[in-house]
Simulated assay, not measured.
Amino acid sequence: MINSENAIGFKFSKYKISRFSFNEANNENSDFNISFSPSGLYNENTGEFVLTLAVEAKEVGTDKVVVEAIGIAEYQFDKQYQLAELPSHFFLSAVPIFFPYLRSFVSTLTLQANSNVMILGLINFTNMAEPLKANTKVI
């Protein structure tokens, strides 16, 4: 039986897209190299975690950045913990919880630009946990 008294709870509070740029691709059927850069700020006094996820999509064969976005997501822990006490499942889950909102934003804006719609596919973010953990600072 699982003892829920020892479980660390958190919730997704809110998000915003703080920066976005779109430059139409040179070719209509272009492929893109997409990179992600996660980082975090954790306030041990309030239990608030702020995730920053930077996304960059470059047109394959060129250095042209077609989409650049920075999204910020806020999470709230059920109580105050030290950074070292945060469970690994939080770092595994933080980016995948927020990504659908960012993906929808990119798709909607590229559609509204009456250009080629950029649809970011489903992505396995398992390898984002360690970079997020390494790029998290305590405030």
Results as ranks from 00 to 15, higher is better:
Val65Asn: 08
Glu28Gly: 07
Phe12Gly: 08
Asp63Lys: 15
Asn29Met: 07
Gly9Ala: 12
Asp31Val: 09
Ala25Phe: 10
Phe91Asp: 01
Tyr81Leu: 04
Lys79Leu: 03
Pro96His: 10
Leu109Ser: 03
Gly71Ile: 06
Leu86Ser: 01
Arg19Ala: 10
Glu74Ala: 14
Asn33Leu: 10
Ala134Glu: 13
Phe90Ala: 04
Pro131Ser: 08
Asn45Cys: 00
Pro100Arg: 10
Phe32Thr: 04
Thr110Asp: 00
Arg103Ile: 08
Met128Pro: 02
Ala54Gly: 08
Gly47Thr: 08
Asn3Lys: 12
Ser39Cys: 01
Lys58Tyr: 03
Leu109Ile: 07
Asp31Thr: 12
Gln82Tyr: 04
Ser30Val: 11
Leu102Asn: 01
Phe98Val: 04
Ile123Pro: 00
Phe36Val: 07
Leu109Ala: 00
Pro100Trp: 12
Asn114Asp: 10
Phe10Arg: 06
Met1Leu: 09
Lys79Gln: 14
Ile139Lys: 14
Leu51Ala: 10
Ala57Pro: 03
Ser93Gly: 06
Val117Ser: 07
Val67Phe: 10
Leu109Tyr: 14
Leu53Phe: 12
Thr62Pro: 04
Ser13His: 13
Phe22Gly: 00
Val50Asn: 05
Ala69Glu: 09
His89Arg: 05
Pro38Met: 08
Val65Ser: 13
Asn23Glu: 11
Phe99Trp: 11
Ala25Ser: 15
Asp31Leu: 11
Leu111Gln: 12
Met118Asp: 00
Leu86Trp: 04
Asn27Leu: 13
Pro38Asn: 08
Thr126Asn: 10
Val117Asn: 03
Asn6Glu: 12
Phe90Pro: 04
Val67Arg: 07
Lys133Cys: 00
Tyr75Pro: 04
Ser13Ile: 15
Lys133Met: 12
Leu83Trp: 03
Thr136Trp: 01
Val138Tyr: 02
Pro100Phe: 09
Phe99Gln: 02
Tyr101Phe: 15
Glu48Thr: 14
Phe10Gln: 02
Gln82Asp: 05
Gly47Lys: 07
Ser93Gln: 11
Lys11Asn: 08
Glu130Asn: 11
Asn135Gly: 05
Asn26Gly: 13
His89Ile: 13
Glu85Ile: 06
Met118Gly: 00
Asp78Leu: 08
Glu5Leu: 11
Met1Ser: 12
Tyr81Gln: 02
Asn135Met: 06
Phe20Asn: 02
Ala7Lys: 12
Asp63Pro: 06
Thr46Gln: 05
Gln82Glu: 09
Leu51Met: 11
Val50Leu: 11
Asn33Trp: 06
Ser93Val: 04
Thr110Ala: 04
Asn3Tyr: 13
Val65Arg: 07
Ser37Phe: 13
Val60Gln: 12
Leu109Glu: 05
Leu102Gln: 07
Ser21Cys: 07
Asn29Ser: 12
Glu56Met: 11
Asn29Gln: 12
Ala7Leu: 14
Lys133Trp: 05
Thr46Lys: 08
Ile119Val: 14
Phe105Trp: 07
Ser13Ala: 11
Phe32Ala: 01
Asn127Gly: 07
Leu122Gln: 14
Gln80Ile: 05
Phe32Gln: 03
